[in-house]
Amino acid sequence: MRFLIIDDDETVHMYLTKLLSSYARCESVFSGAEAIDAFRKAVEDKDPFDTVFMDILMPEMDGHAATKELRALEAELGINGPGEFKLVMITSLNDTKNVSQAFFKGYASCYIVKPFSKVRVLNELRENNIL
Score class of each variant (00 low, 15 high):
Glu76Lys: 12
Val119Thr: 13
Leu19Phe: 02
Val113Ile: 15
Lys86Tyr: 09
Lys105Met: 14
Leu20Asp: 03
Ser109Gly: 05
Pro82Trp: 03
Glu69Ala: 14
Glu44Gln: 12
Ser21Pro: 00
Pro59Asp: 11
Glu27Trp: 00
Gly32Lys: 04
Val12Glu: 11
His64Pro: 06
Val113Leu: 09
Ala24Gln: 02
Lys18Asp: 14
Phe85Trp: 10
Arg71Asp: 06
Gly32Glu: 07
Pro48Gln: 06
Asp50Arg: 09
Thr17Ala: 02
Phe49Gln: 02
Ser109Asp: 03
Ser31Pro: 03
Leu73Lys: 03
Ile56Asn: 02
Ile112Asn: 05
Leu19Val: 02
Met58His: 11
Val29Met: 08
Tyr107Ile: 01
Lys105Asp: 15
Glu34Gln: 14
Leu19Gly: 02
Asn123Lys: 15
Ser117Asn: 10
Met89Arg: 01
Ser28Val: 10
Tyr111Ile: 13
Lys97Thr: 13
Phe49Lys: 01
Asn128Gln: 13
Thr11Lys: 10
Cys110Gly: 11
Ile112Cys: 10
Ser109Asn: 14
Arg40Pro: 00
Ala24Trp: 02
Ala42Asp: 02
Val12Arg: 08
Arg126Val: 05
Phe104Tyr: 15
Leu70Gly: 05
Ala72Asn: 11
Leu93Gly: 02
His13Phe: 08
Asp8Asn: 15
Lys118Gly: 00
Leu122Lys: 10
Leu19Ala: 01
Ala108Cys: 06
Gly106Val: 13
Val99Trp: 05
Asn128Phe: 10
Asn94Ile: 08
Ala38Asp: 05
Ser92Leu: 05
Gly63Phe: 06
Leu57Lys: 15
Thr96Asn: 06
Ala65Asn: 07
Asp9Lys: 10
Pro48Tyr: 03
Leu20Cys: 04
Leu122Pro: 06
Met58Val: 11
Ile6Tyr: 08
Leu20Ile: 07
Asn128Arg: 14
Val12Ile: 15
Phe3Val: 09
Asp37Leu: 12
Lys118Gln: 13
Ser92Tyr: 06
Val113Gln: 06
Lys46Gly: 01
Asn80Asp: 14
Glu76Thr: 12
Phe104Glu: 14
Phe104Lys: 11
Asp47Phe: 08
Asp50Met: 04
Glu124Ser: 13
Met58Leu: 10
Val12Thr: 15
Pro59Thr: 08
Met1Pro: 14
Lys68Ile: 05
Asp47Leu: 13
Gly78Gln: 06
Ser100Arg: 14
His13Glu: 08
Phe30Thr: 13
Thr11Ala: 10
Asp47Arg: 14
Leu131Gly: 07
Tyr15Met: 15
Cys26Asp: 01
Pro59Ile: 09
Lys118Asn: 11
Leu87Arg: 01
Thr67Cys: 12
Phe103His: 06
Ile56His: 03
Ile36Ser: 00
Ala35Asn: 05
Ser92Asp: 12
Arg71Ile: 14
Asp7Ile: 09
Phe53Gln: 07
Ser117Cys: 06
Thr67Gln: 01
Ile6Cys: 12
Arg126His: 09
